[in-house]
Every structure is written in C-alpha cells, then in structure tokens.
C-alpha cells in the first residue's frame, strides 16, 4: 500500500522534538511495508480558516438566544462566540463554496495512495495556564490554532481521519493522523492495525494510577 505524506503547510511549522518524533513515526510506518510518497494539498493554508468561518456561523445561530450570557461561558467558549458575529453571511457562503475545492485537492492528493499522512498535532499539549500558548518551533501560537491546524481542514472536507499514538516527547503523547477517501474507513483501520502490530506506542499508559 502507498501513503501520501502531506508536505507543506501542515508540517512546515512544528515543535522541533515533535517534528523529530514524527520523522521516526514515518519511518516506522514505512517499515511495515507501506510505501511513503510526498504529496501536496496546495491551498490547505486556507482550509482551516474556511472551516472556522463555518463553525462560527453555525455556532452563532445555535447560541444567538444565549449571547447575552456570554460571560457565563469559559474563556474559550466566550472568545469563540464573541468572534462569531464578525463572520458575514457572504463569508459563510464563500467557505461553503470553497469546500468542494478542498475536497478536490484531497482527491487529487490521494491518487495512487490509500491514505494521506500528517502529524496529528504540530505542538505538545499546552500547559494549563490563563493564557495557553504552545511552541511550534521558533514561535508561540494559541494552542487552539496549533491543535486544530492539521485537523479542522478534514472536518471541512468530511474525510475519515484516524489519529494514533506515535511516541512520547517530554513525557507527553504525540500522534500521527491518517486521512482516507470518503467512506473508506476500512483502509485506515487496516493501515492503523499494521502500524500498531509493529509498534507499542498505543500500549503506553500515563503514570497516574488507574485507581488512585
């Protein structure tokens, strides 16, 4: 089987140790007999933005009646909801119209491949703090932006995506993401099972006692 490693935007900014762990995971996947080839999703720097426009718009419709109680929500919820009114109907429709273009890019990237491979996250989990930022290699960004960068685009395209542990960095888990064709979850499970037969990352347990 062949897997397309998505070069470009989704892996160009990474925490250095997370990046190194990702390279190791790519090698492990290749060692299971999978051929790894480089592919591109040329405009996926826009896909996350388009995804957020849709999320904001749909969230605001649901929460409009409660917008007055915005202070009662936690910081993240309040800031997301607070940002929502600035998405116009035209922005929302533009994002919907772009959706098939992103779907088409995934379709092209998948030509000759069973699945695409990306990091599941380009940074480590954030430290709990009033302002949560993470290191993406040379600069810090909001954890939400870093956490969703590789994931929201595939909510937008509706692709099946499987995230699997691929190691530990500073004691925290890092993972890879396999993205497949619509309705082809089966191939992702096949690839994932082969990876987990050859590795033990998924068997690691946190040091917290199970029944403390």
């Amino acid at each position: 089987m062949r897997v397309g490693r998505v070069r470009g935007h989704l892996e160009e900014e990474m925490h250095p140790a997370v990046a190194a762990a990702y390279e190791a995971a790519v090698a492990e996947l290749a060692a299971t007999g999978v051929e790894i080839v480089d592919v591109e999703l040329p405009t996926f720097d826009l896909a996350a933005a388009a995804g957020w426009w849709i999320i904001y718009a749909e969230m605001l419709s649901l929460h409009e009646g409660h917008a007055a109680f915005i202070e009662d929500r936690d910081e993240m919820g309040a800031s997301l909801l607070g940002a929502a009114p600035f998405v116009s109907a035209a922005d929302y429709l533009r994002a919907l119209r772009l959706r098939p273009l992103f779907q088409h890019e995934v379709e092209v990237a998948l030509e000759g491949c069973t699945a695409l491979l990306t990091p599941a996250m380009v940074a480590l989990p954030p430290v709990i703090a009033p302002e949560m930022f993470v290191d993406v290699g040379g600069r810090e960004v909001s954890w939400l932006e870093a956490g969703c960068r590789t994931q929201v685009p595939f909510n937008l395209t509706g692709s099946p995506a499987l995230v699997m542990p691929s190691g530990l960095v500073d004691g925290m888990p890092v993972s890879i993401q396999l993205v497949g064709r619509p309705r082809d979850e089966a191939s992702l499970f096949t690839l994932g099972a082969a990876y987990q037969r050859a590795t033990t990352h998924h068997l690691r347990r946190p040091p917290v006692p199970a029944h403390a």
């Binding site: 426009w53 904001y56 718009a57 749909e58 969230m59 605001l60 419709s61 409009e64 929502a84 009114p85 998405v87 116009s88 109907a89 035209a90 922005d91 929302y92 429709l93």
Partner: peptide, 15 residues
C-alpha cells in the same frame, strides 16, 4: 442587502 446579513442569521434561516 446581503452584505448586511450576519452568518449566524443565515444559518438560522436554514434551521
């Protein structure tokens, strides 16, 4: 007129 319509209201129409 469409420039004056927020996205949330558009989604509400669809609901």
């Amino acid at each position: 007129t469409g420039a004056l319509v927020p996205a949330g209201d558009y989604v509400q129409m669809q609901r």
